[in-house]
Simulated scan of single mutants.
Amino acid sequence: MTTAELRQALPLVTARDLRVAYDGGPNVLDGVNLDLFPGEMVALLGSSGSGKSTLMRSLTGFAPISGGQVRVAGHDVTNLRRGELRTLRSEVGQVFQQFNLIPRMSVLTNVLTGALHTAGPINLAYGFTSAHRKRALELLDRVGIAHKAKDPARSLSGGQQQRVAIARALMQQPKLILADEPVASLDPKLADSVLELLREIALQDGIPVLVSLHVLPLALAHTDRIVGLRHGEMIVSGRTAELDAEQLAPLYADDSESRVGTQEVTPSVHARA
């Protein structure tokens, strides 16, 4: 997608006044508004317990939405039936901190599992078509590890395993990618390379990527926009270029500190790069 096309695009994800509560307890998310546009990579920041993972889970119906509206890729998440939820989840690629690969299986087979929703209940070793295998190899080449296709996943380094996980997510032909702390277990150099890859995918494929991070410099270096949660409320939302570490500091302030002034760091609530 060209820059002009991205700027004219409608959001693929919208959340309005989103509230999430578990078992009748207090709100874990309270009044969150979010837009994700095709082709952008957005950092999700906040301290432990701020609601980052819950927000990601709510976008695929894994968290109990108690109020507000959420739409993802044309699906009204708040009103989906079980079969419709399966369809939605097949359209969302997920990348996790712990990679979630099958260690004893080959790299190629791990990538092929991303196509299970289209291939049906088939044998992992023999059921995939030649077209599936061709695409999986192409994706491994894209993420730079095609030469590892036959190796067991457990033999790869952490950075290589995360690239396999990204290729697996792309195998789904996703409309959205959710990356929950994808570089938390990687050293700085590998973290940079993985985030560069995700941003390249977002731009080239027109897929919005929402990435949860805990290192501010990585968010400032690799994302188009930053949104930040504190105590389940979104208190930061703006273009990365318009934010700095000082403005983002309230996201990590002690609970005893006042929230006064945190709203001033929202210069472009719906801005896109």
Score class of each variant (00 low, 15 high):
Thr223Pro: 04
Pro188Phe: 10
Ala249His: 00
Val164Glu: 09
Gly144Ser: 08
Val215Trp: 04
Lys134Ala: 09
Leu248His: 07
Arg142Pro: 04
Thr240Arg: 14
Met171Tyr: 01
Pro217Ala: 12
Gln173Cys: 02
Gln247Arg: 15
Leu248Met: 10
Leu186Asp: 03
Ala241Asn: 02
Glu233His: 13
Gln160Thr: 04
Leu178Ser: 14
Glu196His: 03
Pro188Glu: 08
His147Asp: 15
Ala165Trp: 09
His132Trp: 01
Gln173Asn: 14
Val215Thr: 08
Ala131His: 06
Ala146Gln: 12
Lys189Tyr: 14
Asp205Gly: 00
Leu198Asp: 09
Leu248Glu: 05
Gln160Asp: 00
Gln173Leu: 05
Ser155Cys: 07
Glu138Tyr: 02
Ala184Glu: 11
Val211Asn: 01
Asp187Met: 11
Ala249Glu: 13
Lys189Thr: 13
Ala184Asp: 07
Ala153Gln: 13
Glu242Phe: 02
Asp151Pro: 00
Arg199Ser: 13
Met234Val: 02
Ala149Tyr: 09
Gln204His: 02
Ala136Asp: 07
Gly158Asp: 11
Tyr252Asn: 00
Lys189Gly: 02
Pro217Asp: 05
Gln162Arg: 13
Arg163Cys: 06
Leu137Asn: 11
Tyr252His: 10
Pro208Cys: 09
Leu190Gly: 06
Asp244Gly: 08
Leu186Trp: 01
His147Ala: 15
Arg154Pro: 08
Met171Asp: 03
Arg154Gln: 07
Ala241Trp: 01
Val183Ala: 11
Glu138Lys: 05
Ile145Asn: 08
Val227Cys: 12
Asp224Ile: 11
Asp205Pro: 00
Val227His: 05
Ala131Tyr: 00
Val194Leu: 00
Leu156Pro: 06
Leu210Cys: 03
Val143Met: 10
Leu197Gly: 07
Ala149Gln: 10
His231Asp: 15
Thr240His: 12
His231Cys: 11
Val183Pro: 00
Val183Thr: 15
Gln173Pro: 03
Pro174Trp: 05
Ile201Met: 14
Leu243Cys: 08
Ser193Arg: 12
Gly158Met: 13
Lys148Ala: 06
Asp151Gly: 03
Ala153Ile: 07
Leu229His: 11
Gln173Val: 02
Ala191Leu: 05
Ser193Leu: 14
Val211Glu: 08
Leu243Asn: 03
Val236Leu: 10
Asp141Val: 00
Leu243Pro: 06
Arg199Cys: 04
Asp205Lys: 12
Pro250Gln: 09
Leu190Ile: 13
Leu198Cys: 14
Arg163Asp: 13
Gln162Tyr: 11
Leu190Asp: 10
Leu139Ala: 05
Ala221Thr: 12
Ala245Lys: 06
Glu246Asp: 15
Val164Pro: 06
Tyr252Leu: 15
